[in-house]
Structures are given as structure tokens and as C-alpha cells.
Amino acid sequence: MNKKPLALKILDLVSIVLLIAATYLSIFVAPMERVMGNVQRVFYFHVGTAWVALIGFIFTAALSVIYLATKNLKWDRIQVAAVEVSVVFFLITIILGSIWARPAWNTWWTWDPRLTTAAVVELVYIAYFMLRQGLDDPNKRANFSAVYALIGGLSAPITFFSIRLFRTIHPVVIAGTNAEAEGSFSMSGGMLQAFFFALFAFTVIFIDLFWNRIRLGEAQAKVEEMKINAAY
């Protein structure tokens, strides 16, 4: 096992600093939102984690295609790292959304298209890990995972549209307006600053965790290989 590269060590530290800075900006620097109060501050982290998790899931689907085209296990290791980190981030997104929804919508959960799609997508990728657990052969596991990740990624937008059959109350903050949305607000200068900083911070944190997870996957592959060799 090769030693942890210096760049990754630096990135670890930078991620910690960025997380602290993003927290500071969203709690102490950004102005308080007048209608919802302090709970609105979790919004910066909510969108930050959602942003990277969704990019991670799209990336995952692309990796499926690359793996199936090349059949190189390297892509499988990258994919499982991307899925795992995205699942963790998306879990944070869902929990934060729920915490925000309680005072803003007066309920922890509602079966709105975005919330439902989020829950279904999270379940797809949890199922992805259950599928992997049931398989020992690395090539077969990689094949199946790539197939399932691709199907899951394709089903997500259709799931979203299918729940559009019901109305939505999720606010659209960045673009467009939704008359039925509750809890929307426009961002002022300090808020935008915290918002973009959180996006940046979570992108860096994602890359850091992603890199660490890829290294873990490489170590796992090495152990598997050694165990097979030891058996003979």
C-alpha cells in the first residue's frame, strides 16, 4: 500500500478549513432571513450538499457507460467511490431539508416531487450497495453495478416527472418562480456570498472524500487479489 500523497493530505486540511469557514459564513456572516428566522441558514449546506451529490450521481451514470465500454475495473472503483460519497452527501441534504421543512412547512416530510424523487434516488443507490454485497467475483460485481447504476440514473428523471402528477410546494430559489411554493425567498448580498462559498466548500470536500474513497477501493482490490493468491 503506497503512502498517502502529500497533495491529498493538504486537501484534507483545506477541506476541514473550508467546512469551518462555510459554517462561520452561514451562521454569523449571512444576514438572518426575516420570515423563517435562523433555520434558513441550513439552506446553504442543503444546496451545497445537494449540488455535489447530484453531480456525483450524474458522474456515476457516465462511469457506468465508461466501465461497460472498457471493462477496466479501475472505473468500477471510481464509480463505487462516487456513489458512496454522493449517498452520504445526499443523506445530509435530505435531513437538512426535513429540518428546514418542519418550521417552514410545518411538517417534517411531504410527498412532493423533489422530496419523493430524492428519497427514491437515495434508495436506488442504497440498493446498489446491497447488490454489490451479494457478489464476490470482482468482474461480475463491476458489471452488475454498472448496469444497475445506469438504470437507476435513467429512472430518476422519469420518477421526477411521474410525481409531477401532483403539485409541488418546494421552492425554486435560483431560477423560475412557482406560485404554489412556500418558503421561497430572494437572496441578498451576504446570503449569496455564503451560498456560493458553501457550494465551493462542499465541492472541495467532495473531491477530498472521493479521492480518499478511491484509495480505499484500491486497497480493497489489493486485499481481494492477495486473498485469491493466498488460496492457491
Binding site: I27, G37, Q40, V42, F45, L96, I99, W100
Partner: peptide
């Protein structure tokens, strides 16, 4: 009056750090 929702905010940040 702006409602006091600080406890929700603290819970939100705490859970984020906990999960990470």
C-alpha cells in the same frame, strides 16, 4: 416578528457534522 428557529438550525448543523 421573525420566529425563533435557532434550535432547528443548531440541530441541522450538528447533524451535518455528525454524518460527515
Amino acid at each position: 416578528v421573525t420566529p425563533d428557529t435557532s434550535s432547528y438550525m443548531i440541530a441541522g448543523f450538528a447533524i451535518t457534522f455528525l454524518v460527515l
